[in-house]
Amino acid sequence: MDTVVLENISKSYIKDAPPALENVSFSVKKGELFGLIGPDGAGKSTIFRILTTLLLSDAGKATVAGYDVVKDFHQIRSCVGYMPGRFSLYQDLTVEENLNFFATLFGTTITENYALIKDIYEQIAPFKNRRAGKLSGGMKQKLALSCALVHRPEVLFLDEPTTGVDAVSRQEFWDMLKRLKNEGITIVVSTPYMDEASLCERIALIQTGHILSIDTPDNIVAAYPGKLYALRSPKVHLLLPDTRSYEGIRQCYAAGEKLHVAFKEDGKDHPAQLLTYLKSKGHQTVAIQEIRPDIEDCFIEKLSNPK
């Protein structure tokens, strides 16, 4: 049986408002690194809270490590680690006091599972007598992860651990997750950063309470309908409205220094025709090239063409 299973989970907070989650189903295999990818308000935190037994769903069934989230919430609470979206440790306690507190709360000691958190904790150990509130963003995050891991949980739930963290710290954090995965811990992680999707084994794209698709990042990319092209020009932002005005365009949006373009139909001569059209609009030095879509392209595609 899979470690985390959701079946048709629905949840609304306010009556008559659109539900936070609607018929969400997915499962996570043992030892898997599973990503929930979606913007703020997509329902990621609600999923975490239901799985960590903090919230009751309105409908549907869910199990974690074989335990039912409603009936067996005590068992679940002793076998999961959870890092909520906000930094949730005691700011007025020192690094060491925080870790000690959570270790004892989970009925263990720091030394018992030290091997697991060693790599992470050693980075913050020089500041162990500093109050948690005085740590930098990256260090807070490492402390929070250490606290969530200190009892060697079977399943680790991480709600947007990299939000508001800079690119370098984000990279380090994902490296840590990979090591934890190798220790056999099942990890469910959420992120609004599409570029982090490729670091997960399987992902669920989620928007306004609905799952858009679930698969490995590679399969999701492979399922992109049709071909995707990149347009390059010295004046990209002037190019955008002109390209959009072209008849045969299905998708056209900025992507960094390029424009990403998809045609309504993939014909061999469409790219050349587009270039001619753009030339007539005064864009002389435009280059077009077929590219492999990334997760963000797939997400945009799913948003504009929901099933």
Binding site: P39, D40, P192, I300
Partner: peptide
């Protein structure tokens, strides 16, 4: 100051349209 944090990719682009 980080105006588009946590915003979905489509809205993020619409936001940049406003900036332009």
């Amino acid at each position: 100051d980080e105006p588009t944090g946590g915003v979905d990719p489509v809205t993020r682009r619409q936001f940049w349209d406003l900036i332009y």
